[in-house]
Write a protein that binds this DNA or RNA. Structure first.
Length: 221
DNA sequence: ACCCAGGTGGCCC
DNA sequence: GGGCCACATGGG
């Protein structure tokens, strides 16, 4: 089959990579921080930034909300765009504290209300909002990222390489059962696929579990 | 010396 | 609604 249904893609990935039980982080707040810091940067660099925050005993909403901006910049520097991210992360923490009291309270909002609220924060766009909703609030939203777009375009060339976020999210949500565990693990599988095989310019297909349905370079590889 | 990474927001038309 | 741009470290 040339264009496998999403659930078949998922089954293949899962058979290859195993169940991921994802988001690398110890708390809801760490998910939020990681989701902001990983914007357009590698997770490796985010790990350094989060380690710095932990080492400085500063990985808490209250501390970041009132932290000296220069200190925050210094701690998260390895994650790139550090001035912008420091300003936005501090603003996000301060606003959650002020308007909701705690992250837990914010995450209790109903899914669509929560999404709308998160999107109104400077520094939280659709992918970041959905990552927080899925992995911290544990509500079923299908997260789309660069890996997902790239892989889907290569599997099904009728899906544009720069398809709109909401359009691709709808594509998955219309074709899958609305289950948090499924959305959670499926996104994790795409990230694993992207890191190991489905890289930007020159894929290292090797043992890629989707290589027989891949159309990269207009030719099957 | 390039190119790339788990995006977002601002500005312009 | 779309196109272009700044933002920045670290690894290949």
């Amino acid at each position: 089959m040339d264009r496998p249904a999403p659930i078949l893609i998922y089954r293949r990935l899962r058979r290859h990579f195993g169940f991921r039980d994802w988001w690398p982080g110890d708390s809801d707040f760490e998910v939020l921080v990681g989701a902001v810091l990983t914007q357009q940067t590698t997770w490796k660099n985010v790990e350094k930034a989060i380690a710095n925050l932990k080492e400085a005993d500063s990985l808490s909403m209250e501390k970041i909300a009132s932290m000296d901006i220069r200190k925050l910049e210094r701690l998260i520097r390895p994650s790139g765009y550090y001035r912008q991210k420091a300003k936005r992360l501090k603003g996000i923490c301060a606003r959650i504290k002020k308007e909701h009291g705690s992250l837990g309270n914010l995450l209790k909002l109903e899914k669509n209300g929560l999404r709308k609220e998160l999107l109104s924060y400077n520094g939280i766009g659709m992918e970041t909002a959905d990552s927080i909703i899925l992995y911290a609030a544990e509500k079923p939203v299908f997260v789309i990222d660069a890996y997902t777009k790239r892989a889907m375009h290569r599997i099904d060339p009728s899906i544009s390489a720069d398809i709109e976020y909401e359009q691709l999210r709808g594509y998955f949500e219309e074709r899958l059962e609305m289950k948090t565990e499924l959305y959670n693990d499926f996104h994790a599988q795409f990230v694993e696929l992207g890191k190991r095989y489905c890289t930007a310019a020159r894929p290292s297909c090797g043992e890629c579990p989707l290589r027989d349905v891949c159309h990269f370079g207009a030719e099957r590889i």
